[in-house]
Amino acid sequence: MTKRLLLHVVLAVGAFVSLFPYLLVVLTAFKSQGQLNTTAPWVPGLPPTTANLTRFLSGDFPRYILNTLVMTAVLTAGQLVFTTFAAYAFARLRFRGREVLFWLYVATMMVPSAVTMIPLFLIMRELDLVNTWYGLLAPYVLGTPYGIFLMRQFLRTLPSGLEEAARIDGAGPLTILVRILLPLCRPALGTLAIITVISSWNSFLWPLIVTSGEGTRVITVAIATLKGGIGTDYNLMMAGGLIALLPMLVVFVFCQKYIVRSVALTGLK
């Protein structure tokens, strides 16, 4: 009983530490400027106000939200298509150097993304793609090492007899992938889609580096621009953070089983 009690205490403390920043975002978003200066950060403002949310949505920020939706949709579609083709090649097709090429590609996950930002930016600048949608999407729309690893691991668990039977009937690799394997890959595709949506929606560093105009600005960069050199409107910033957080919270609540499944697919199988 003592061990169980200590375990629950540790879990409760960890949950509180994890959730406390989100609580501050919610409380600050519904405070007026006067309430922010006269109350402690963890004390709600009474009466709560929605003026900060109205101010945030009355400017150009709905356009930035739309930009983020477009970027997320394109990156997710690209990941599902190109990652599936690459994973199929690494899992099912036989060619010289397949294993070496795959593990060299997966090894790039060990390199921090911040290390590759400057080379990527220089490439985009030489191609005249800075501050364009092409420059924003190009580095990630063709797939990522994690996504290919996830799909390859799942494809390797499918019985090879399905492919052999299809080949006897005259099916080619593309037909086998599209008509036989893809319907069986729905759990893995759903997992990859959820992970891509979350990572794309929360992307900040690359959009900050490669874009500077209003037409390609995403919500994370827009919120960061609210911090000025003279002062910061924390109420408006927290209102933007709350609006940006809500879609991801909905995705997590309804799709958390896919997020957990990604750990099982890559770790156990």
Rank of each mutant, 00 (worst) to 15 (best):
Y134A: 15
S160Q: 15
P207R: 03
F154E: 01
T144Y: 04
G228M: 03
A165S: 13
V178I: 08
R156I: 14
R186I: 09
A171K: 06
P173H: 10
T232N: 05
T144H: 12
A166I: 12
L192Y: 02
W206P: 05
I209S: 12
P159L: 01
D169N: 06
W201C: 10
F149A: 03
T144N: 12
V197A: 02
A165G: 15
L177Y: 06
P139M: 08
L181I: 12
N202Y: 10
K227H: 07
G231K: 12
A165K: 08
L205W: 15
T211R: 03
G135I: 11
Y140K: 09
L181C: 11
F204A: 07
R167E: 15
R156N: 09
V178S: 04
Q153D: 11
T211Q: 00
P183M: 12
G135Y: 13
T196A: 12
V178W: 15
I195Y: 08
V218Q: 06
T175L: 12
R167G: 09
V197D: 01
L177K: 05
R167V: 14
A166E: 00
W133I: 09
R179V: 04
T132N: 11
S200E: 10
A193G: 00
S212I: 08
G147N: 07
L208A: 10
S212E: 09
L155K: 00
V178L: 14
L177R: 00
G231T: 15
L182V: 12
G143C: 07
I219T: 07
E163Q: 12
E164I: 14
L162Q: 04
G215C: 05
E163V: 07
E214N: 04
P173C: 02
I198G: 04
I230T: 12
I219K: 07
V210L: 02
V210T: 14
I194R: 04
I180C: 00
T132R: 14
I180F: 08
M151L: 07
L177E: 11
G228C: 02
G161S: 13
Y146P: 05
Q153A: 01
L177Q: 07
A193Y: 10
L158G: 07
I230N: 01
G229E: 15
T211K: 06
G147D: 02
I168Q: 14
V210R: 07
L192P: 03
